[in-house]
Nucleic acid binder design. Structure first.
Lengths: 155, 155
DNA sequence: TATAATTACCCATAATTACCCACAAATATG
DNA sequence: CATATTTGTGGGTAATTATGGGTAATTATA
């Protein structure tokens, strides 16, 4: 299985049926691996929606269940938050998915509104444009962040 | 895979469809390695566009993703900012790529205007001519910059 | 079980992009 | 120096993409 390479930022509309388009380039990648199902979820932040192609979701799910202990309360809470709002979606013939009201409310995404899709290499994020702007203003990467990164054997 | 050797400075026009030419010498190099796809990105500065031939991008991407953990909020923010403004382009049969409005705005590059392409050994930069001039006037390398460079096992 | 609500599937269309051809300017070649 | 080739630039058209909406099938609800 080759790496996905979801990059970029895309603006789409949410229609009256709460459908969003998935960028056609991402669809092509998924098609090549015969993936037409994704899992949308609350993910680790609470201000946007995560979209995992099914194979990626399965890897994530298995990693989590393998390393979590049910006797640990924090672990239980984490699993609950991670799966509670996760739902499977099939792309329609136009390449769209339907969002759930609960995830939309959590992310501030509105029916007949707009949404921004951001590529995160092997999964995607769906943001309300306003929330994204707010997030960018509040948490810019600082020079000290970059200094820390310089210490990694990266570039 | 041999090293690329992108050098020099080239002046091109931006047409009404936001297309820029890629220097034919660079194209030849990429052709020899069967590369017809590049990733354009905001890179680490915000006043010009970076252009990575696909193989170079993949190396960069893998270095970054390998050391990142999704449960880490700072890491997520970094990946987001890194990929958000990165987009894949295929060279057309004339050897041009189409720039995105967002990257153009960020770099001050205008439709029907001009752009300067600078070779950076194994990637390229696209500058607005005015921005480039400003940058050259404002930030020449100082002696203390060179002293810092001396500490790296570089040259 | 009957009815209402929801969802899956299909068709239509405007906007955008990819692909192609044309030509002028610049460069290389004999 | 004349001619051929490559390179940069512009634009038309077919194909793709994004988006909206209708209707049958499915699911939920009384």
């Amino acid at each position: 299985m080759g790496h996905s390479d979801f990059t970029g930022e895309f603006n789409y509309s949410i229609d009256s049926k709460n459908r969003v388009n998935i960028p056609s380039r991402y669809r092509k990648t998924m098609n090549e691996e015969n993936v037409c199902e994704v899992v949308i979820s609350k993910g680790f932040d609470s201000n946007h929606i995560d979209v995992y192609p099914l194979p990626k979701w399965i890897v994530l799910r298995d990693k989590i269940t393998a390393s979590m202990q049910l006797v640990n309360r924090v672990h239980r809470n984490f699993i609950r938050q991670f799966t509670q709002n996760a739902s499977h979606c099939t792309l329609d013939s136009q390449g769209r998915i339907m969002l759930t009201p609960k995830l939309m409310e959590m992310a501030g995404i509105k029916t007949n509104g707009n949404a921004v899709i951001i590529g995160m290499i092997d999964f995607m994020e769906i943001w309300d444009p306003e929330e994204l702007k707010k997030h960018e203003e509040n948490t810019p990467l600082t020079d000290s962040d970059f200094e820390k990164l310089e210490q990694l054997p990266l570039i």
